[in-house]
Structure formats: structure tokens, C-alpha cells
Amino acid sequence: MRYREPQRVIHSRSRNPVPSRKTYYYLAVNQAAGGGVETAQKLARKLERRFRRGDCECIIETAANWKDYTRMVSEAARKRPHAIVVFGGDGSVRMAASQAARIKGLIGIVPCGRFNNIYTSLYGPPDHEAALEWIREGQHTAIDAGLVEGHFFLGSLVTGFIPAFIERLGTGSLPRLTMTWAKLAGRAAEDAIARPTTMKIDSFTFTVEPLVLGVHLLSTVLTLKIAPVADPIDGRLIVVFDPKGDRDTIAHFIRDLKRKKYQFSNGVQLVRGRRVTISPAGGRVWLLDGDPVDFARDEIMVEVVPQAVRVFTHASAKS
């Protein structure tokens, strides 16, 4: 299959297609994201027009698929933009944030994905206008990132029930009714397999047999606050798991989260730590900020990189 170059649209007020380090904003649109490419492109052009009123310069690029997107953003990062602004979902944000962290640039998020968990965790429900305005204003702060066996992430590493639930959701729109979520959760719990798992959280080692297992830097997964106490700047991970792998408990847990009731007990537990090891990792489906990931080792280590990523923010945004 012939490789297709990503669509490239350059907007510049000068003859130089790559503006100066101080004013260069790179706007990356992922056409494969679940929020709709037309919406994302319109928002990118809207932000570019707002930047034109000042002294900023923008380059807008649209990628047709994930391979194009990763290549496009990696090449753009070599030119060291002041900020990479992502019009896409969680996977798009994670990839661009890893590049922004490497060059000590800023990352902007305009939520155009299906779940938009990273945006929701940091700022609240998706709001395109608010996102554009915060990026234009330019205020920013540093948040933590995570590393698992060399893989960078911002939000979560999950296995077991969550991947099974996403599989049950399919590609359609998210259900609105709480009871529909509970029914899907029950079916996903039947699909998931509870496996004996040994975890070491800092110096505390224990063995459980969970259906739900996730390591979180941010609060939101599946648009639900599965790790509500997660803090993006405290240098700690939140491990969420159910010790006994009880399917009814999981269905009730998802139902309560959908109702915005945060009831954690012996059924589903949260533990904080700076470093987590999990084994065995093999034979499981893992999702890293929503994208599948494979590990070469059967014991994996997850750790925090404090204040590794600079993100745009606002006084009214969640911290």
C-alpha cells in the first residue's frame, strides 16, 4: 500500500513557513479521532484566526490516519514549536504530549475525540470555546506524566473490565441512560477474566484477583470519575482495583459512578503510590490512554515523572 503524505495547510503572516520559537504554534488535527474531522478542522481554523490578531504564527496539519499523525507530530516537534495544540482524542493528546515534554513545549487540548478523558480530568466537560480561549490567553501550568516500561502516558493504564466494557460499547454513540450503562457493565464483567495478580505499590506487596485494574494519573476513564481523588500535580499514582473479582459489584460500581456517587469500599479500592509493579502482565489486554499497548516483560513497572508536561490552563479550570 502506497504511503500517503498528510494534508498540510500552512498559514503564515511572513514568507518564512516556520515562524520563530516564541510565536510558533503547531495545530495538529487527527482525522481518525472519534469527534469528527470537519468539526476539528473548523476549530483549528478558528483558533488560527484568533492568533492572527496578535503576533503569533500557526501551522495547521491534518493527518488521515494514526501513522500519518505520529509521523506528522514527530516531525513538527523537531522544529521546536512554542506549543503543540491537539484537535483529537486521548491517544492523540498522549502522543503529542510526549513530544511536547521532550522539547519543553506546551500542549493544548481541544477535545475532538470520543471519550476526551484527559481534557475532562483537567478542565471539566468538553467545551470547545473555552479550550480555544484558554489556549489563546496562554496561561499554563505543569502536570505529572507516567512511564510504564518506556511508554509515556498522561491519564491511565487499564486492563480487565475497562477494555471489555469499551468492546461492549462498540463504535456507536455513548448511552445516555444509567441503566444502559449498568447492563453493559454487567455484560462486560462477564467477558472480563479475573486473574491472580501480584502488585507492589511502593513497599507494600499483595496479591488479588481483580476484574477492575487500573493505574491512574487523572480521574476520568470512560467519561466517568473512576479515580476521583487523582491529582495531576501531586506526584502520585492511583491504583483502582476490586480484590475479589465480583461481577455484581462491578456493575453496581459503574451504575453509581454514572449517578455521580463515589462509593469506594472493600468492593472497589483505591491505593496511592509513587511506583507500582504488576505481574503477570502477559495474556491481558492493556489500554494506555485508550490505545492498545503490549509489554515485552511479564512484570511491568509504572512510575510518575513529576511536572513533566506543561499544559494551557485558566483560573477557572480544574487543577
Rank of each mutant, 00 (worst) to 15 (best):
residue 139 Q to P: 00
residue 319 S to Y: 01
residue 260 K to C: 02
residue 116 N to G: 10
residue 296 A to L: 09
residue 90 D to H: 07
residue 72 M to Y: 02
residue 97 A to D: 03
residue 109 I to C: 03
residue 203 S to I: 04
residue 192 A to M: 04
residue 111 P to L: 12
residue 306 P to C: 05
residue 159 T to P: 02
residue 198 T to F: 03
residue 183 K to I: 15
residue 203 S to V: 10
residue 189 A to L: 07
residue 78 R to P: 04
residue 121 S to H: 11
residue 133 E to N: 14
residue 34 G to Y: 04
residue 282 G to P: 05
residue 132 L to E: 08
residue 185 A to G: 11
residue 159 T to V: 12
residue 22 K to G: 00
residue 46 K to F: 09
residue 197 T to H: 01
residue 116 N to S: 02
residue 115 F to C: 04
residue 20 S to L: 02
residue 21 R to A: 14
residue 286 W to I: 08
residue 66 W to D: 08
residue 98 S to M: 09
residue 138 G to T: 12
residue 188 A to C: 04
residue 45 R to Q: 13
residue 103 I to S: 03
residue 177 L to W: 05
residue 46 K to I: 01
residue 288 L to C: 13
residue 135 I to T: 06
residue 153 F to V: 07
residue 86 V to T: 10
residue 84 I to G: 00
residue 94 R to S: 13
residue 138 G to W: 01
residue 313 T to G: 08
residue 53 R to W: 05
residue 169 L to C: 02
residue 293 V to L: 04
residue 316 S to Y: 07
residue 24 Y to N: 11
residue 176 R to A: 15
residue 47 L to M: 05
residue 124 G to P: 06
residue 299 E to W: 06
residue 116 N to P: 00
residue 193 I to D: 12
residue 298 D to P: 06
residue 189 A to Y: 04
residue 99 Q to Y: 05
residue 272 R to W: 04
residue 25 Y to R: 03
residue 279 S to W: 07
